[in-house]
Simulated scan of single mutants.
Amino acid sequence: MITKKKIALCIMSGGMDSTLSAYMMKKRGYEIVALHFNYEQRTQKKELECFHAICDELKVSNRYVLDLDFFAQIGASALTDTNIDVPTGGLEEGIPVTYVPFRNGIFLSMAAAIAEKEGAEAIAIGVVEEDSSGYPDCRESFIESMQQSINLGTKDETNIVIEMPLVHLKKSQIVKQALELEAALHLTWSCYKSEDKACGVCDSCRLRLRGFEEAGAEDPIEYR
């Protein structure tokens, strides 16, 4: 009897969270289809390079890279508008200027089209609600609502589960689990500002460094 393969479409930014999510899905027996977005973010070239390197490490051959240049036209985020400075003064309360309007909603909508085409039963996204920078599109309730909408808007026989295995983890727990799975953390990138050496002072770098410190581990990437 031929066993039908399980396919998971993994949204992979090249960062630590989405990389761990992909490793977790592979461990659960899924064949990985990888999806990456170029959305005119400051570190677009570096993130794409990391995405391909991580896919090589995971031996993922089926990869999609989608270009979304309209995010730059929309602006309103320090990640896509160079006229807005990336904050470096420390983690702040509320929604930061690095929030890209409805980014994960758009990503998941496009991922749904690919997942349906590929016959995937799961979409994996590395959102983190409890220890993130306060992005509204990283909330579990939002992702659950997107799952419902995707299944309402696709074929009757399509039944997609959106997996968010990290949503309730702290960054230190993410680091520990990544080390346990021997995830290629040295190939990941989190910095919002730089593409050569991580700045170490943007929100994303601070969260990452704090996670490694609390996990009692050393971050393998270079910092300024």
Rank of each mutant, 00 (worst) to 15 (best):
S149Y: 10
V86G: 06
T43H: 03
I114W: 11
G134I: 03
N83G: 08
I54Y: 11
L9K: 09
G29P: 01
Y99N: 09
R139C: 15
T98F: 05
E47P: 09
M12A: 02
T19R: 03
C205D: 03
E40F: 04
C10G: 10
P96Q: 08
F70G: 13
W189M: 05
I123Y: 07
C202L: 04
G153V: 07
P220D: 11
R208E: 03
A22D: 03
D85Y: 01
E218T: 15
M12V: 05
T98H: 06
V128T: 06
F51K: 04
L179Q: 10
G126Y: 08
Y99F: 08
E140F: 09
L108R: 08
R103P: 08
F70L: 15
K171Y: 00
S149Q: 14
R139Q: 14
E157N: 15
E129T: 11
A115S: 13
E116N: 10
L58V: 11
N62A: 07
L181R: 04
G105H: 03
T82E: 08
E31P: 03
Y23W: 04
E57W: 09
I84K: 04
L169W: 01
G119N: 06
S61Y: 03
D56G: 08
D196C: 09
D17N: 03
I2T: 10
K193C: 12
A113V: 13
I150M: 12
I125N: 09
R208C: 05
L207C: 01
L35K: 14
A124D: 06
V33S: 10
G105V: 05
Y135C: 14
A122V: 10
E195D: 15
F142E: 07
A76R: 05
L66W: 13
Y223A: 13
M164F: 07
Y23C: 06
M25L: 07
V201R: 05
D69V: 12
G200D: 08
K6I: 09
E140M: 12
I7T: 08
R63N: 05
C191M: 08
Q177V: 00
D156Y: 11
K59F: 02
I32P: 13
T82I: 07
R103Y: 04
H52G: 04
F37C: 15
A120E: 03
K176W: 00
G29S: 03
P96E: 09
M12N: 02
V97L: 11
